[in-house]
């Protein structure tokens, strides 16, 4: 993993890893960006993406090291291999960025997202929603006589699938956190 880590001017070894193939295929990558948690740091990262025309498919951020004041920003982005390499290099150039990891290429990783679904309905629809929620291991966190709020965690695909199923059953509102991701192993 460390071989592919780009950090502050990059390690000498990563010079080779920056050799891209200039393919036109758009890839989806999950980046974990460790930043110093100071005012405006999120704006720097987001401003980089908007200013240089990169995509953000999902973004989450929270402080993960309270003593070191480090926040972890997980960004799911898409682009050609050349664009992905540029994004990583540009992120590495931001002074407040401590580390950039491309979880998509740095070996196996797990991705999870939390979502809440409000489903309104009566009678059979309501029962069906509850049955499907059980299959998906979604929890009921709020209930009225005419609605449920389900809480579900999982890979984004699973949440998409659950949303598709809830739609005909009276899906009223969705809130999603965006992806949090970690590499597998030690």
């Amino acid at each position: 993993m460390s071989a592919l880590k780009i950090k502050k001017g990059a390690t000498s070894h990563s010079a080779y890893n920056l050799r891209p193939n200039f393919s036109d295929v758009v890839e989806r990558h999950t980046l974990a960006v460790l930043v110093e948690n100071e005012p405006g740091v999120l704006a720097r990262v987001i401003g980089l993406f908007s200013g240089r025309g990169y995509n953000i498919d999902s973004l989450t951020v929270a402080e993960v090291d309270h003593t070191g004041h480090l926040s972890r920003i997980t960004i799911v982005t898409s682009g050609t291999p050349q664009v992905i390499e540029q994004i990583k290099a540009q992120l590495g150039r931001i002074v407040s960025v401590v580390e950039v990891h491309d979880l998509t290429v740095e070996g196996a990783s797990v991705e999870r997202e939390l979502a809440m679904f409000k489903v309104s309905g009566k009678g059979e629809q309501r029962v069906e929603a509850l049955r499907l929620a059980d299959i998906f291991r979604a929890n009921v966190v709020d209930s009225t006589l005419e609605s449920f709020v389900f809480e579900i965690t999982g890979a984004p695909d699973k949440i998409d699938a659950f949303a598709d199923l809830m739609r005909p059953l009276g899906l009223a509102e969705v809130a999603r956190t965006g992806v949090a991701a970690l590499s597998r192993g030690g």
């Binding site: 780009i6 001017g9 990059a10 000498s12 990563s14 010079a15 080779y16 920056l18 050799r19 891209p20 200039f22 050349q82 390499e85 540029q86 290099a89 540009q90 590495g92 150039r93």
Partner: peptide, 19 residues
């Protein structure tokens, strides 16, 4: 180049040297 983001930004190069 001292700036990794300059390398392969516009022109693909064969021998990148960061420093």
């Amino acid at each position: 180049d001292i700036d990794p983001s300059s390398i392969n930004k516009v022109i693909r190069v064969d021998i990148p040297i960061m420093g």
